[in-house]
Design a protein around this nucleic acid. Structure first.
Lengths: 166, 166
DNA sequence: GCTTTACCTAAGGTTAAGTTGAGGTTTTAG
DNA sequence: CTAAAACCTCAACTTAACCTTAGGTAAAGC
């Protein structure tokens, strides 16, 4: 196991990384200002990257696909070891972390989906209490009845509901 | 069935709607400029809304929760009848439309989740071909082997892979 | 009738996630 | 050795989805 030090030396230019990772050079600059990736400089002040930057970008893009903000991504990436190149297990634990985030999101969207039909059809007017706005307390309430606002015959009930506040 | 015309008259002020729908007045102005909602004016040039604006806002918010952009929402809402107040069936068909959108999104995120572990762990460097970037052609490719870039012993293979392009 | 609250328009600000451009330097290719 | 391609920094622009502020009018409460 000859871990030669040269292996880990920053040797990729910004253009190479950009091409390889399929992102714009400007995006790499931007990620750097946000602390998402890191670069070294050569004698002429040009950026040089270590190869693991590619995986960081992979992670960034995957997380973005999950709807995670760069800020959150940065926070997660910052947990990676600073002093050494991340190992497979480092990445794997990050993967597990995001899988659970994604699971949450999927669960959330599923709840929304299940409510959409009921609520759009329902016609309850009180948006503050409508579960569609706060699917998190899904257990707490239900759409209270089929007050159909849009059918003139029943608008009266709706109006009552409206007048209740204010 | 006495469909009295007064029922449908615009009678709600922007403040009332804002309070009821739990959105800012400025948001209502904004939605109006975007063609998402519609208002009439009273003698003093103040906005007056028909009651169905509440349901439109409900729909807008629900759709936003699904990650649908206002532009897309506007396009969908524009399919509602302009000349008459939308019926329950109008809303229901819109609901069905968005349920299928939501289903797509859930399916998409599920695919991403299922790939995250494999790909982050996999280490394939070619991001252009990595399925994590284009989960849509999920059938087409797989991560090709366990090229672990971050473990020095195997970095050589990774470098080869890198050098392939450019 | 007066005052407070609500409303009006128009312009400018905000945040995220970058992109574009200007003006200048470094690397690379021939 | 020179010219083109790549790179540098910094500032300003972009889009979405609003919010805030300013200066002025309308409506509501007492």
């Amino acid at each position: 196991m000859t871990t030669s030090t040269t292996r880990d030396e920053p040797r990729f230019s910004v253009g190479q990384v950009a091409k390889r990772a399929d992102v714009a050079v400007s995006a790499l600059h931007f990620y750097e200002t946000k602390g998402l990736i890191k670069s070294w400089r050569n004698a002429g002040n040009q950026r040089r990257y270590k190869s693991d930057v590619l995986r960081r970008i992979a992670v960034i893009k995957a997380a973005q696909k999950m709807g995670i903000s760069l800020l959150e991504i940065q926070e997660t990436l910052s947990k990676l070891p600073d002093n050494r190149t991340p190992t497979k297990e480092d990445w794997a634990s990050m993967s597990r972390f995001w899988q659970s985030k994604l699971d949450e999101k999927i669960a959330y969207m599923t709840r929304v989906r299940d409510m959409v039909d009921g609520c759009i059809g329902c016609g309850c007017l009180s948006m503050k209490s409508c579960p569609i706005y706060n699917p998190d307390d899904i257990v707490a309430k239900e759409c209270n009845g089929a007050v159909i606002l849009d059918q003139p015959e029943r608008a009266h009930a709706a109006k009552n509901c409206y007048d209740k506040e204010n």
